[in-house]
């Protein structure tokens, strides 16, 4: 039942996406879009996550989501400049290695998003993950250790928090 709800949401999302990408609105395009998006949903049915995974859309969570994106972009810019400095310096002061950090998030969708955010930030790369821990490869090991209790992790924990809803 939950999966059906998720499938319908997914269908609506890619149907809108289709209209944004095709420049005009006409019957032909709507019919083709309907067929294509229902086929995509049909063939990927076993990949669709439960609707319980999705954080409830309230004004609070939307604001938190944008705060999260903002923090992520700031982090990306900062560490990109750091990595560029390391690459271009003569000696390349790197100290690469794997570090395990604790998994604090509960929902699987948020865990995947957090792993993706770590990978998107330069200098850190998620290699493996389960419900208890995340294995992260760092260009400089110290940077990975700072991830625990960082503002990025806090933003994700805020997104998951339920008691205010």
């Amino acid at each position: 039942m939950n999966k059906k709800y998720g499938a319908i949401l997914f269908f609506i999302l890619i149907f809108i996406f289709w209209f944004v990408l095709s420049f005009e609105i006409s019957i032909t395009i709507a019919v083709i879009g309907f067929l294509v998006s229902s086929m995509v949903v049909f063939f990927n049915y076993d990949l669709i996550f439960n609707s319980q995974e999705i954080t409830k859309l309230t004004i609070r969570t939307i604001v938190r989501f944008f705060v999260l994106i903002f923090i992520l972009v700031i982090n990306i810019i900062k560490s990109n400049i750091e990595v560029a400095k390391i690459v271009l310096s003569k000696k390349m002061p790197i100290d690469p290695g794997f570090v395990k950090i604790k998994q604090k998030l509960k929902k699987e969708l948020n865990q995947a998003l957090f792993a993706n955010a770590i990978t998107l930030t330069p200098g850190t790369l998620t290699v493996d993950m389960n419900h208890e821990e995340i294995v992260v490869h760092g260009l400089v090991k110290e940077k990975v250790k700072h991830l625990e209790g960082s503002s990025l992790e806090k933003a994700f924990l805020d997104l998951e928090e339920k008691k205010h809803d």
């Binding site: 990306i76 560490s79 990109n80 990595v83 560029a84 690459v87 990978t119 998107l120 930030t121 330069p122 200098g123 790369l125 490869h137 260009l139």
Partner: peptide
């Protein structure tokens, strides 16, 4: 690290 990151 070098390639995928500077791509973003």
């Amino acid at each position: 690290h070098a390639t995928t990151k500077c791509d973003t």
